[in-house]
Design a protein around this nucleic acid. Sequence first.
DNA 1: AGCATTCCCTGTAAGC
DNA 2: TGCTTACAGGGAATGC
Length: 276
Amino acid sequence: MPEMPEVETVRRSLIPLIKGKTIKNVTLWYPNIVASDQSEFVHDLVNKKVIGIDRYAKYLLIRLSDNLTIVSHLRMEGKYHLVDVDTPKDKHDHVQFEFTDHTALRYNDVRKFGRMQLILTGSEKTATAIGRLGVEPNSADFTDQYFISKLKTKKKNIKNTLLDQTIVAGLGNIYVDEVLWQAKIHPLSVSRAIPADKVKELRKNINHTIKWATELHGTTVHTYLDANGNYGGFQDKLKVYGHSGEECPRCNTILEKIKVNGRGTTFCPHCQVIYK
DNA sequence: AGCATTCCCTGTAAGC
DNA sequence: TGCTTACAGGGAATGC
C-alpha cells in the first residue's frame, strides 16, 4: 500500500516518463476513479502538456499547462505505467492518458480505491482534501512542540492518531506499526498520556523511517510497484509489520497481531509500553 | 466536536 | 472440487 515513501518513489519515477508530453485524449474505462466532473476531466485535458509532478503527503499533483492539476491518490493499490498506446488493456487498467507520441499513461488499480480530480492549479487546499491535512514528516512545521501539543488533545489511541492524516500526513499502517515499535510505545496507548520525551522520540523515529524508506524506494508488500514496475527495498527492513508470530528483534518475545479500529496491528507485548 | 464504525472494491487464502 | 467466508486497508461518509 503506497504511503509517503512509495508515493514519492512513484513521483520520481513518473517524471522522466511523462514530463513534456502532450495529452491527445483521455479514456475512462472505470469512470468512478475520477471524483471530479468526469466529462470535464476527459474534455479539459486534451492538448494539455505535462510540466511536472509535485506531491503532498500521499497525494500526487500532476502539473499541466493552462493552470491545471490532476490530484491523484493511489489509496491501496493504485499504479501508473507507461505503455505503447496499442498495448492491450489490462483487466485493472481504469484510466488512460494517451499522448501525442503514441505512448499512453495508464492508471491500474485492482481494488478501484484510488481517486483523481482535475482542479485549477493553486486550488489544492480548497478543492481537495489536501486542505485538511496536517504537516508532513521531515517538514519544518513538524516540530516537537507541534507534535506534543497535538497529541495532548487526543484521547484516542496512538495507532489511530498516527493514521489520522490531519495531524501528521503521510504515514500509513505499515510505517505506524514500525515507528511505534521503534519508540517502544504500545499501539493502544492513549495519545495524550504519552510523556513528552517519548513523543519527541516518536517524532525522530517517524522522520528517520520515512527518510530511510524513501531512500530505499519504499516498501513492497502485496503489490506496490513504482511507475517502472520496480519493487521497493524497505520490506527487508520491517521489524514488526508482517512479522506477527515471530520473535521481537529486540527482546525475543513473540510479536502479537490485534485489530485496532479495523486495522491489523502488529506489536511486541513486552517491550512496547502502554500509557493510559 | 470527536471518536468509532461502515462502506467502497477484488484477489487471495482458509474453511467446510 | 467448489462454494462461502474472512481478510487486506485509506479515506469519505455516516453514526453516536
